[in-house]
């Protein structure tokens, strides 16, 4: 019988650890004396032995969206990272000025200003902050033009790197139901090779209903859909 077919793999592991935590894999400690290395090894072993329950990315179903929407009255966003084949429903947990912070149940957050990406946390390779320049104003007024924006990330050394972009904002056609104006933002990095094109669906009140935005080199484009304001 393989270990993974045990219906209670974690209980079995717990008994094993309690039995003799000096076994090479299962070091143990209390009162902050232990090292993170042994903890990591143990957790890693537990995952392997237990058979990972998080076997790859999960997709949100329309039923799940309805369930969550029925349960709370908070603003709600569906965010999808096509490159990572991963999506999530995120709920507003805080508001600071114009910026709303949305969170998953797994303690990951995305900060949006009228639907425009201002930051993320807990995704790995996070967008630490963004200075959007006049973009929020241009979107709200549905006006085109040239804009400069800055996006900041941490590199592998944990040092802040700042990407400066020059962007051309254009107003596209209006239509659809609900009626929105399509706006595009074409950005190229100043002194660099990065470039991206964001698109925004803006309603008559100047609010972004749906968008496709660049979240940085680690995550690429994200599709952000406002389910409820």
């Amino acid at each position: 019988m393989s270990v993974t077919s045990d219906p209670r793999p974690f209980r079995r592991l717990g008994a094993l650890a309690a039995l003799g935590c000096s076994l090479l894999l299962a070091a143990c400690s209390s009162g902050g004396e232990g090292s993170d290395i042994t903890k990591y090894v143990r957790e890693f072993a537990a995952q392997k032995i237990g058979g990972s329950s998080a076997g790859g990315p999960q997709r949100i179903t329309p039923q799940q969206i309805q369930q969550v929407a029925a349960k709370s009255k908070q603003p709600l966003v569906l965010i999808d990272f096509p490159e990572k084949k991963s999506n999530a429903l995120i709920i507003e947990i805080a508001r600071n000025g114009a910026v709303q912070t949305y969170a998953t149940s797994a303690r990951q957050t995305v900060a949006l200003e009228n639907g425009l990406a201002r930051g993320s946390r807990g995704l790995g390779g996070d967008l630490m902050s963004a200075d959007l320049g006049r973009l929020p104003h241009m979107i709200a007024q549905r006006r085109g033009g040239i804009n400069h924006r800055e996006m900041r990330f941490l590199n592998g050394e944990d040092i802040t790197v700042r990407f400066h972009f020059s962007c051309k904002v254009e107003v596209g056609p209006t239509g659809g139901n609900p009626r929105t104006t399509t706006m595009t933002e074409d950005c190229t990095q100043i002194n660099g090779l990065a470039s991206f094109t964001n698109t925004y669906q803006v309603n008559g009140a100047g609010r972004v209903l749906k968008s496709e935005q660049w979240f940085g080199p680690s995550h690429g484009q994200a599709v952000i859909q406002q389910i409820r304001f």
Binding site: G122, G125, G156
Partner: peptide
């Protein structure tokens, strides 16, 4: 290897709580 590259740039830990103004 290169010390300047990390497993996950900026770390994979969970998000901090937001500031409450």
């Amino acid at each position: 290897t290169n010390p300047r590259r990390a497993a996950v740039p900026g770390g994979a830990e969970t998000a901090p709580v937001p500031v409450a103004p």
